[in-house]
Design a protein around this nucleic acid. Structure first.
Lengths: 224, 224
DNA sequence: GCTGGGCGTTAAGGATTCGTCAAGACCGGC
DNA sequence: GCCGGTCTTGACGAATCCTTAACGCCCAGC
């Protein structure tokens, strides 16, 4: 049974999540502030964490940092509408995904399932396959319809970062720094150009992306 | 019993790995810096090495170089998230795989199993055949249209590295260091000259290569 | 309805890298 | 010392890639 820890200070949300998650066969525990949340993670080693960014005692990103030093437990962040900088900071700190309040329970459950599935078994082979193309990380090779797809170095690096974090949202800053180096943080024009080129080479309908998704204001995500 | 050496300077990681690996029936030994790590590898000849790139006394890639001169022991690298250039350097130096910290124990174990499995049986295909020529790795012989092709020592080494990694892209740094030695890393002019010579001797149309492909900006690939 | 910001798309230049050739350096055998 | 073969080095046009700017689109906010 999958164990989930919910960290939130609003009793109504705690109750709603407990009911819905328990009904889906999750084992739920709760905490209402960052301090007890961190303690609970260390004590219970949950399979996933749902974390509200607005806590009474500390900033949510501090909780993430406190966890990421020693654990890779998937963390899904809840945040109020419009706090964009907060979400970006949380993702940069190592959160796996985020949901905006007020949220639909179905969406949250879907993202939770995805996060848990992603974390569970590590893929042995460095080959990622989709319905339209395959990416061989070790051989640095991309195949589509049986034919090789030619990628430039920059295109390849960008694709590699996204594919290695399949399903996970990567912020623009993270992508820029991984591909172009630590001194690049805001030249998001590069990203738009190269994501467009990747889509043109990989997507069946480049104008309606299915794999290389953009999360407006946040970053990009490779959806396998 | 498979023997694993862990080189890391963080006691908590050493402890965690020792516990988990021992529980899986691995025989574990540890070292906390590069110098003693290299000594331990030479002394114990482990079946695999788990190496943290952030060591107190030397860069992790230097450790890899120090090992790769005389041993093919699989090396799995641990690195912090986002240090892409570091990972590339480690893979270029000869690491077999890498895991990003914080890591899931399951993932690390899976990659360790894969690395050991890859290393254990070395069923080197002694003869590689293409439509236009054949390469006998054991006899160090190349035949084309029934006649032997004369290769100089350097040409042969270069061809051997590429053929042994059939289908895989090999970075120019890797090729240079495998053929010319560890101190050569950026003299890519050598590569251009010798790849051209190989193409002239092996390709049906040297100006339109079919087997010895170049991936601009990255390296070369032998396409069977 | 207008405006501004973020995103997608395209194209052109300038910079980098690659292929090719050839001449000189090096080295072992005779 | 001579000589054949091999390796290094430099230079150049050609191919490729990166950068940058401009423009259109969509959507939110006023």
């Amino acid at each position: 049974m999958t164990r989930v820890l919910v960290i939130d200070d609003e009793p109504s949300i705690l109750r709603a999540l407990r009911i819905n998650l328990t009904a889906r066969n999750y084992e739920v525990s709760t905490a209402s502030d960052g301090t007890s949340g961190l303690a609970a993670i260390a004590r219970e080693r949950p399979d996933a964490v749902i974390l509200d960014l607005g806590l009474p005692d500390m900033d949510g990103t501090q909780v993430i940092h406190g966890v990421r030093g020693w654990s890779a437990t998937p963390i899904i962040v809840l945040s109020v509408w419009g706090a964009e900088h907060q979400k970006v900071a949380a993702l940069d700190a190592g959160a796996d995904d985020y949901v905006t309040k007020p949220f639909g329970m179905d969406e949250l459950l879907a993202r939770l399932r995805a996060a848990v599935r992603r974390a569970a078994p590590a893929p042995d082979e460095p080959v990622v396959t989709t319905q339209d193309f395959t990416v061989d990380l070790a051989a640095k090779r991309v195949t589509r319809d049986g034919a090789d797809v030619r990628l430039t170095p920059t295109e390849w690096q960008l694709l590699e970062v996204l594919v290695r974090n399949r399903g996970r949202l990567i912020t623009q800053k993270q992508l820029l720094q991984d591909v172009w180096g630590p001194s690049y943080g805001s030249e998001s024009n590069y990203l738009r150009v190269y994501v467009a080129q990747l889509r043109r080479k990989l997507e069946p309908e480049p104008s309606r992306p299915r794999y290389l998704l953009t999360e407006p204001g946040m970053g990009y995500r490779f959806q396998g």
